Simulated assay, not measured.
Amino acid sequence: MLSVHTKPSRIPLALLLIVATAAVMAENAFDLRGSLVPADEIHAGGPPRDGIPALTDPAFIPATQANFLAPEDRILGLNLSGEARAYPIGILNWHEIVNDRIGERAVAVTYCPLCGTGVAFDALHAGGRLEFGVSGLLYNSDVLLYDRGTESLWSQIKKQAVTGPMKGQRLSALPMTDTTWRAWREAHPRTLVLSTDTGHSRDYSRDPYGGYAQERGLYFPVSASSKRYHPKERVLGLEIEGTFKAYPFAELSKHGGGEIRDRVNGRDLLVRFDPVNESATAYDDKGYQLPAITGFWFAWYAFHPQTEIFTAARRP
């Protein structure tokens, strides 16, 4: 153990990295050896493992009973096999993961408040259901999930296990919409809504990250950064067979909203932007919604510094 009187300038960098990594392992009880991402870039977010409690098979209520939601409140919307569900950000801020079932399908709805990213995953893997918890660890400021079966760590934005027995394996993302309660309910009047009766005592009307989305500052370091946009500028991020492209809302707004036809990695697609509800979605040439990610610019760029970027055409 290092003495509190040791001068920082005398401590070798390698030793500092070893101590920092050991501290992360000890605090959250995960083995980071052999990680697919640099272990010294995995940071403890503050809460211990499961200090932010994931929800598993929680209760849902009809839209008519969701009196706690205001029209402008943001939700993550999922529509599978004709069944629509809304996951309020006000609840996800406190839990980050919902292990859910829609019909016979196991899904994991995840949200990282620090990156503004919501991603839904198919939770069936190798014939079994993956149940996720919140590790309390971050990579590029993004939540690292862990599956309770193998205790492997999974990067939400990479959609890949970075440590443990599942290392290198990937999750299949599902199409999900980040929008307002007003817009989702209008499109899906029979939607079910995640209930505030979660079994946990939380003030879901309070945002524990109040003001963060407007600030330029980040709480944790990232491996790559760009000053091209405000760090918290919202973007729609797409991956088409290994090619990444970002659609910043600032550029979509300049375009005037509506529909944008584009071509990424040889594939035609359509991006729809709703400026009133600050929501963007993408579709393939057959009209099927693509599993894009809505989140902050800094987070998308940190994971995809080689990203292509949509820019609005200049008007004469």
Rank of each mutant, 00 (worst) to 15 (best):
S226P: 03
L80P: 02
Y87D: 04
Q289K: 07
I260D: 03
A120S: 13
G164E: 02
N99W: 02
I293L: 09
A108E: 08
L55F: 04
A299M: 08
G45T: 10
G256D: 07
R202S: 12
G164I: 05
L236V: 09
R74M: 07
I11S: 10
D274T: 11
W94P: 09
L137P: 05
A39N: 00
A173E: 11
S152W: 02
L218Y: 05
P47T: 04
P165T: 14
E308I: 06
L137E: 04
I75F: 01
P62I: 06
W94L: 10
A246Y: 05
G242K: 04
L236C: 07
D178I: 10
L80R: 06
T110L: 05
A84K: 04
E41M: 12
D147M: 10
W94I: 08
H255W: 04
L36Q: 10
Q160G: 01
D207P: 07
N277Y: 06
P291S: 03
L15P: 01
R190F: 08
P113A: 05
S253N: 13
F249N: 07
G257C: 08
P305L: 01
I240L: 12
A123L: 10
C112M: 03
R105G: 00
G211S: 07
E104P: 00
S195I: 12
F132I: 08
L218C: 06
S225K: 09
S195H: 13
Q214V: 03
C112F: 02
A14F: 12
T191K: 07
L15W: 06
R85L: 10
L153C: 10
F60M: 02
V271E: 00
L124Q: 13
L69N: 06
T6Y: 10
Q169S: 13
I309K: 01
K286F: 06
T179D: 04
L55D: 00
G34A: 02
S253W: 11
G46V: 03
P38W: 09
N277I: 02
T163P: 01
T163Q: 01
K7V: 13
I157L: 15
V24I: 11
Y204Q: 11
Y219I: 03
N277Q: 04
I42T: 00
P48S: 09
I18D: 15
H304S: 05
I91F: 02
T294I: 05
W300F: 14
A250H: 02
E241A: 15
S279M: 13
H200W: 15
L238A: 04
G149E: 14
S81Q: 13
G256M: 09
R272E: 14
G118N: 12
S152P: 04
W300C: 02
D285I: 00
E308D: 15
S155I: 03
G127H: 04
I42V: 12
L36R: 11
T6M: 13
L153P: 08
S9Q: 15
K227D: 15
F60C: 01
T56K: 05
P38Q: 01
V19E: 14
L144F: 08
V271S: 00
G149S: 12
T110G: 06
L55G: 05
P53Q: 11
G90T: 05
G242T: 10
S135R: 01
G211C: 09
P38T: 05
W181E: 01
R170E: 13
E83Q: 13
E241W: 09
H43S: 11
